[in-house]
Design a binder for these strands. Structure first.
Lengths: 231, 231
DNA sequence: CGGATCGTTGACAGGTATCAATGCTGGTGG
DNA sequence: CCACCAGCATTGATACCTGTCAACGATCCG
């Protein structure tokens, strides 16, 4: 396994200004002056698939912007099983609860090799206190938390297993720019749509047999029309 | 049915300063000067049980602070059924998405007679631009959206029907100050924990027979230990 | 005294969890 | 280079749970 690594550290203005995904990230609306208020270093992290960015109940001092890859937010249940309550991708913020609480609410675990920017909460609070330029982007991200949670609740936990898995595939495919998307393991699929691993496997296998789902080394792709018709 | 009514309208400082639940509401941290920035009237509304405060896709111009009663946030599904994605009580904010989007994401429907303060979004944006005193309370409310959604996802949509209903009763009981709490109708219980109305009814009836749940004209109460043991 | 609405209960078919066994594949070390 | 292993995916058999259809009871209100 590739080790978790810290590639770079820098102070705000030097690098954020040249961020290739600047239009997608939390700092999108900041002015040059605002960056001067960032006093602590921002780290650029590469995290190999399967590792935790942070864990539930840990001291929450950082927010993470996802630059590439995919992250699952996980809650463990008393009986030892787990539930995935959200998936994070390009431009999403992990650990946003650190802005309000003192500890993280979930485990954040990478599904693929993932790169993130680690931003100190202190800097964000400082910015929020001194400039109104962050407010809009922060609110937009909180709102995405809400609408994603709604999708989870309304589309991924209701109805028959086939319908739920179909909706998950449509969701995964929709949030990806290209034709191919990352297909989670069967246990994770089960933890997302609240079905057993075996039922997830059976359903995925059936979709493959029916030609609704294809998997290659580049990722998975789907027949959207067919999956939308499933009841 | 009691009609929906507007009791009072006032401009910020005159009344918010004397709000009996001031410590619980969005404006908790505002200073006297801040209130002077409220230019549009804030209305105090009484809404009878079963009425909509706002509906999905309506133009979102107001945020509502719940002063008493209970509200369900509802999403209708393509097949005509519905799902309750959150319950709001004292101090919660309904329509918080109006701060970021242009339309409401849910129907907000009162379960009991409910009183709310209707706050124009423009005033909140104005305050956010000019003072940092609102940020903390707003963030706390966004965070509650997240943690409530997590509870819904992790505790109310996983496992057997009995376990889900038991968790719902514990949730309802926990967020109430007194011994008694409001017990939703069977159809609503089904829409919260994603089971059929009949299964909800059977489960509630069984809990009553077992002495885990009691209903009186004052509301419902539970045997917490017994419900926590259910698997 | 109906009628409407909601809650309860029964019967049954179908779907899903569970337990279990068997493929499959990528990585490791001989 | 190949055998082996560990982890994941697939598939089968079965019991149980829950959705569905249906009927009936309770309560409130006009």
């Amino acid at each position: 396994m590739k080790p978790t690594s810290i590639n770079q550290a820098w102070n705000g203005a030097e690098k954020c200004g040249h961020c290739p995904i600047r239009h997608l990230v939390l700092f999108a609306d900041l002015q040059q002056d605002d960056f001067n208020q960032l006093h602590e270093p921002i780290h650029d992290l590469e995290i190999a698939a399967g590792n935790a960015i942070y864990k539930e109940k840990e001291d929450a001092q950082f927010v993470y912007t996802i630059r590439s890859g995919m992250v699952k937010l996980v809650r463990y249940l008393p009986n030892g099983s787990y539930r995935i309550v959200r998936l994070l991708q390009l431009g999403d913020l992990a650990g946003i609860e650190s802005l309000s609480g003192s500890t993280y609410l979930h485990h954040a675990i990478t599904l693929q090799d993932t790169s993130v920017c680690r931003i100190p909460v202190k800097d964000i609070e400082q910015l929020n206190f001194n400039t109104p330029n962050l407010y809009k982007q922060l609110t937009a991200r909180w709102q995405k938390v809400q609408s994603d949670a709604d999708i989870w609740l309304a589309e991924l936990t209701v109805g028959h297993a086939k319908k739920r898995v179909a909706n998950l595939l449509l969701y995964l495919s929709h949030y990806q720019s290209g034709q191919y998307f990352y297909l989670p393991g069967r246990e994770d699929i089960g933890a997302i749509v609240a079905i057993s691993t075996e039922t997830a496997s059976r359903t995925i296998a059936e979709f493959k047999r029916l030609g609704y789902l294809f998997t290659t080394h580049q990722g998975a792709s789907i027949n959207t029309e067919k999956l939308e018709q499933i009841q």
